[in-house]
């Protein structure tokens, strides 16, 4: 995917704390890829990532690049407290990717009152600053948006 530059300049967002089990994911986003961990032993996908496969206990894993297509499985709209890095209301989705795993990401290009469970979305990998690139999700039917 192309990495999009966030339009609005704001104070920096909270940083993720990254360790050996999660750095592939954050590095992937910087390279424009939404990567999901895949067990080498039993081929099961898992997110959030972990060093051991809960299914077969293998420590060997690789990644697949997700298409970024999914549907909204659940969502919230943040109103309070208002933190300087974010616009409010701030909608955030729990997305079920077509590969079968769920992942949390910001929702963009949709009015809060129009957000519903089941809406198809597409990941938009967005660079907020030199250190932070995140997966935002935009409804696929929405061509315009903000």
């Amino acid at each position: 995917m192309n990495v999009i530059q966030a339009k609005e300049k704001r104070p920096p967002r909270p940083r993720p704390i990254i360790n050996d089990d999660t750095d592939f994911f954050w590095n992937g986003l910087k390279a424009g890829k939404l990567l999901i961990q895949k067990c080498t032993g039993c081929q099961v996908l898992r997110h959030p990532s972990s060093p051991m496969c809960p299914e077969c206990h293998s420590l060997d894993w690789g990644t697949i690049e997700a298409t970024g297509k999914g549907v909204i499985y659940s969502f919230v709209i943040m109103h309070h407290p208002e933190l300087p890095p974010f616009d409010y209301p701030n909608p955030i989705g729990l997305i079920e990717l077509e590969e079968g795993v769920r992942i949390v990401g910001g929702l963009t290009g949709i009015k809060p009152e129009e957000i519903k469970i089941g809406i198809p979305v597409q990941a938009e990998i967005t660079k907020f600053d030199d250190d932070l690139t995140l997966a935002m999700f935009r409804p696929v039917s929405n061509k315009g948006g903000n």
Partner: peptide
Amino acid sequence: AAVSLSWYIPYGLVTPASWAAMTATR
């Protein structure tokens, strides 16, 4: 906890109420 919360806090999903709300919507 820090690594786990990192899937959420960069998006602003930072409060106990927000985590509870995600379950509540579903």
